[in-house]
Structure formats: C-alpha cells, structure tokens
Design a protein around this nucleic acid. Structure first.
Lengths: 134, 134
DNA sequence: TTAGTGCCTCCAGTAACTGGAAGGTCAATA
DNA sequence: TATTGACCTTCCAGTTACTGGAGGCACTAA
C-alpha cells in the first residue's frame, strides 16, 4: 500500500512516516516507480511506534522497545526497566507542572483582571512582592 | 558587572543570558574591551524572565510580560489573560500526562520483570492484547 | 491531452537552549 | 617581562521530533 493508506491505517502523518524511515525505524520496500510499498508488518511496526509515542516514550526508546519486541530472547525485565524509568520521568514532570500550576493559579486568582495597571502577577515575577502559593 | 556575576545573581547560565541578548530580551552595555556590562536593571529583567520561565511561560510570553511590566499603561486584564491561557495549557498537559501515567503504571504493574520474554508491556504496544488501564 | 491528486527528495524552520572551537583580555605570579 | 589560568568574545553545530514548502515525477480519469 502507498503512504497515504499507511498513514490512514496508523494515524500517523505521512511526513512522520517518512521521518521514521529516515531515522531507520521502518524500512518499507519500494515499487518500481519509487513509491514506498508498505506491508502489513510495516503497518504493525508503525502502529507500535505510534502507541509507544502516545505513552510518551522518546523515539529512541521506541527504537529500543521495537528491538526488544522483535528479539524473542529479550527478558521482560529489560522492558520493565525502560517503562519504569519513563514512568519516573513522567511522575517528576507531573510534579513540576503541578507546582507551576499551583503558583500560577494563585497568581491568577489574585489578579483583578480589569483595566487598571496594578497586577500581582507582574509584581510576583518582578519579585517586588512575595506573592507565593502556600 | 561581568556575565559570570550576572549569571550567579540570576541563576541563569551565561550561555542562556547571551542567548537572551541574542533574541533581544536584554541589551546590556559593553565595556571598552567588548565584555558585557550588566546593570542592576539588566539583572532585574533577567531575574524576571527566569521566574516567568520557571512558571513555564514560553520565551515569547516572557517578552510580552516584560513589555507589559515596563508599560505602566497596561491593564491587569492583559496580563491575566496570558496567565490564564498558560494555566489552561498546563492543565491540559497535566491531564495528558496523568493519562499516560495511568496506562503506563498499569502496564508496569502487569509485567513480571523477570528473565522470561513474555511481556504485557510489549503485548500492549503491539496491540496483540488489549491491556488497558481502567 | 489535460487536470488533479499523490508521490518523491531536499532544505529549512520550530523551541530554547547547550557544547565546543578559536581566539582576545585581564590579574596575579615567577 | 613573560606566562599562566580564568574569563570573556563570536560563531557554528547539535539537540527532539517533527512540520512546511518548493520543485518535480507518476498515476488516473475525463
């Protein structure tokens, strides 16, 4: 099948699929006219990558996961280790964002949001006043 | 003061400060020898940007916030609008990450993590089995 | 034959830095 | 005075994961 159908089947933009080929994640055959000819196995791989990306794994992690998937001598420990590392990163990122959210929400709630210039958000950024979230 | 002290005072890497000058966020004077000469006002601006970045505002938002800060005819509504948009983005991002986290944590908990090859994480990515988090 | 769509490659741009090379400057020391 | 060594400069390239667009074939239907 051509790239458009591959794109439809995997929910990945054609551009992205070409990019994944560029960096060696998939190697679709070519027709005589130079068009990429995707097999079911390519679709499967692309969908695998798409799902892994959807869980936030980096492209390089996707590459590793794909290798592990294709390597029947893998151990589940290897996979779990990657997933656990990623989970830890997500947890950290969530914590950071929650912290931001807390401060920001507090500042927003303190700001009148009218047509006067006085603004606790700017004051806080300027550290003129210590407007912190508890 | 030289860039090293500016860096120490603002907790921003010297590289980053040069970058901020490059994109026009600050315009420190120069000494006869070509070294940047930071004034207190530059430090103040850099610290402002650093705090805004710490809250997750983009560099362009920082630029806008800085302009608003320096424009005494601003309205707090303008500032609040930017902050609220940003807050909404953060909320969305947190929600996405929580969703990832949920699925991932479930998969991790299902995986034995031993030296056998069988792995529900890979199975799920391959969509061979529907291992979803409820 | 022509139009329209789809495919190709290659180049550049995005966000926000970061690393490193090549080289000038300054203060203290031998 | 010469020389370290720390500090400063600019400029170029790389990072992540794509995305947009230009220029140009290929295919299909009318």
């Amino acid at each position: 099948m051509n790239i458009k159908e591959a794109s439809a089947r995997t929910n990945l933009p054609a551009k992205t699929i070409r990019y994944y080929e560029d960096i060696g994640l998939v190697q679709p055959d070519r027709n005589a006219n130079g068009y990429r000819a995707f097999e079911e196995s390519d679709i499967h791989k692309l969908a695998f990558i798409g799902r892994a990306r959807g869980l936030g794994f980096t492209v390089e992690e996707c590459r590793t996961l794909l290798h592990l998937y294709e390597d029947t001598t893998r151990t589940s420990a290897e996979v779990k280790s990657i997933a656990r590392d990623h989970l830890a990163r997500i947890d950290q990122r969530i914590a950071e964002m929650k912290e931001m959210r807390k401060t920001l929400a507090h500042l927003v709630s303190c700001c009148a949001g009218d047509d006067r210039p006085n603004c606790p958000i700017l004051d806080s950024l300027a550290a003129d006043q210590s407007v912190k979230s508890g």
